[in-house]
Nucleic acid binder design. Structure first.
Lengths: 166, 166, 166, 166
DNA sequence: TTTT
DNA sequence: TTTT
C-alpha cells in the first residue's frame, strides 16, 4: 500500500440490508447509512440540516453479520476504505460509483434497544447480537480456511504464547 | 502542527462524569471510558477478555454537555488527541499520566435507551439530550465570544452565503 | 450532527491543484490524490496493484494553501468528510459525484524533498511551506473574521489564560 | 470487542528504534514519535509550541520492518490502539505507562529523502524501503503460519477468485 | 431511506 | 469502573 485510504462512519441504516451470495458461495451485503449535519444559517438564522447517505459494501463474514443482526434503523460504526468502481449505463456511457468497503463493523444499539424496538429484533430465535467488533478476513486467505477458522475475530492483544510481553 | 495526533474511542462510561470549574469559570470534565477486546486463547482454547480504561478530559462546552447528559454506562464516541502530562507524586518523583483530550463528543445511546434505563436519565426536567456531535471550541477564541456564540456547533457544510458552491 | 462522517487519506497528488475563486471572493481548490494497494493474486501468484483516486475539495484558507504549496507529486495527509453531490449531465440525467471535503490538510514532504525534486518546488521565491496542519474555518463564522483572524490555525492545547490547567 | 480503541499518529522518530527479541523468537520494537502543535498565545501574542512524544510498540513483522527501515528522524504513519500497562517501580509502587500498540505502519519519507539525508539510509546494501503499508498479524494465528505466509500483507481488494465482484 |  |  502506498498511502492511507480510511473511512469511519457512525450512523443509522436507512433500509434493511441487501444480501447476495456470490457464485463462489460467499456473502455480500449492501447497507445504506445516513449521517447528517445541522447548522444555523447565518443569513436567515434558521436551522438547516443536510443528510449524507453512505453506500457500504460488506463481504463474507461481515455480510453474514449484517444479514443476521442489522436492520433498518440500526446504528453502526463502520471502518473501511473508499472504492470507486466504473460501470456502464444503458447508453454505454461510463459511470462511476463510490462505495465504502467495510473492513470492520460494530453494532451500537444496546440489546435492550433492539428488544424494545420491535421491528429491529433479530430474526432468529436465539437472536443474540454479539456486541463485538467484527473484522473482514483478508481475501488472500484460502476460502476454506476462512470458513474453518473465521478470521472475523477481533484482533487479540498480542500474547507470546502466554509469556507476558512486557 | 507537525504531525497528526488523533484518537477515536467508542465505549461506555464506567462512572458518572466528574465536573470541575476552573478559576476562570470554565468547565472541565473527566470521564472514564472502557473498551474491551476478547479473543480465544490459542493454548487453553478459552475465551479471554481485556478491558482498557481511557481517561478523557473535556473542556468548556464539551464539559458542560458531559455534565448534563452523560452518565455511568453511557455509550459515547470521542475524538481527541493524546496528551501526557507530568506531575510529582508525594515523594517528589516525576510521574506521567496520559489522557485523551476530547475535541468532539457524540452520544450513542438512543433516547429510548436513556428513558428506559432509569438511572441514566438526564438530571434536569427538560432532560433532552440532543443527538448531536459537539465540537470543542478553539481556545484561541476570546472567551466571551465562546460564550456568546458557542463554537460547539457542528461544522456546517460549506456555504458561500447561500450561493450553492457546486 | 447525527453520526460521524470521517475520511483520512494519505497519498500523492496526481496533478497540479485546480484553484478557483467563488463569486464572494473565497478560494476553492480541487486536488486528486492517489492511494494504492498491492497484493499477491492467490491464483496466479503474481503481484497486482490497484490505485484509487480521491477527488478532494478544499475551501478558503485550505484552498489557498493548496494553491501555494501543493504540486503534482506532493504527499499529503487530508482529513475530511464524504459529500455526494447530484448534478445533471448533458442529457439531463441525474449523476452523482462523491468527493471528500477536506477539513484539515498536512503536507508530508520534507522541505529538502521539494528542493530536490525540481518540478515540485513552490512557485514563489520564499517558497517555504510551513510544516503545519491547517484546519478549515467553520463556515458559520462571519467571513470578515475568517479573513481577519484566519481560523486555519491549529487548535492549540487548551490554556486557561495561561493558568496551567493540570 | 466492545467499542473502538484507535489511534492515528503521523510524526517523526526522536531516536533509533529499539529492537528486542522475545523468548519465543519474535521481534518487538519500541519507537518514540513526536507530534507538535503551535499556536499564538492570546495574551502575549507570541507563538508557542508543545511537543507530544508517543511511545509506540510494534510486534513481529512490524518490529522487523522498524528495525530495518526506520531511523531517527523518519516520518511515519502509525495506526494502533492504546494500551496502558501496570508495573511496579523500585519502591514497589504501582505505576502505569500508556503506549500505542501499532497495528499498521507506513513510512512517509520518499526514497530520495533517505538517500540524501545520509544518516537515515537503510543499513543494508539493497536498502530499499518498500513504500508499503504493513499490517500486524493477528496473534491468534499459529506462529508457523505467520512465518510461512506473513499476514503483514496489505489487505487486498476483495476478489472472488478473479470473478469481478461488481 | 435513517436518526435526533 | 462500563458494556456484551
Amino acid at each position: 500500500m502506498a498511502g492511507v485510504n480510511k473511512v469511519i462512519i457512525v450512523g443509522n441504516l436507512g433500509n434493511e440490508p441487501e444480501i447476495r451470495t456470490m457464485p463462489n458461495g460467499e456473502a455480500v451485503a449492501n447497507i445504506s447509512v445516513a449521517t447528517s449535519e445541522s447548522w444555523r444559517d447565518k443569513n436567515s438564522g434558521e436551522m438547516r440540516e443536510i443528510t449524507e447517505w453512505h453506500r457500504i459494501v460488506l463481504y463474507r463474514r461481515l455480510a453474514e453479520i449484517a444479514g443476521e443482526y442489522l436492520h433498518k434503523g440500526s446504528k453502526v460504526y463502520v471502518e473501511g476504505r473508499l472504492r470507486t468502481r466504473k460501470w456502464q449505463d444503458q447508453n454505454g456511457q461510463d459511470r462511476y460509483t463510490t462505495e465504502i468497503q467495510g473492513d470492520s463493523l460494530q453494532m451500537l444499539d444496546s440489546r435492550g434497544d433492539r428488544a424494545q424496538s420491535g421491528g429491529y429484533a433479530p430474526q432468529q430465535s436465539g437472536g443474540y447480537a454479539p456486541q463485538q467488533q467484527a473484522y473482514a478476513a483478508p481475501a488472500s486467505r484460502p476460502a476454506q480456511q476462512t470458513t474453518a477458522k473465521p478470521a472475523a475475530q477481533p484482533e487479540p492483544p498480542i500474547d507470546f504464547d502466554d509469556d507476558i510481553p512486557f
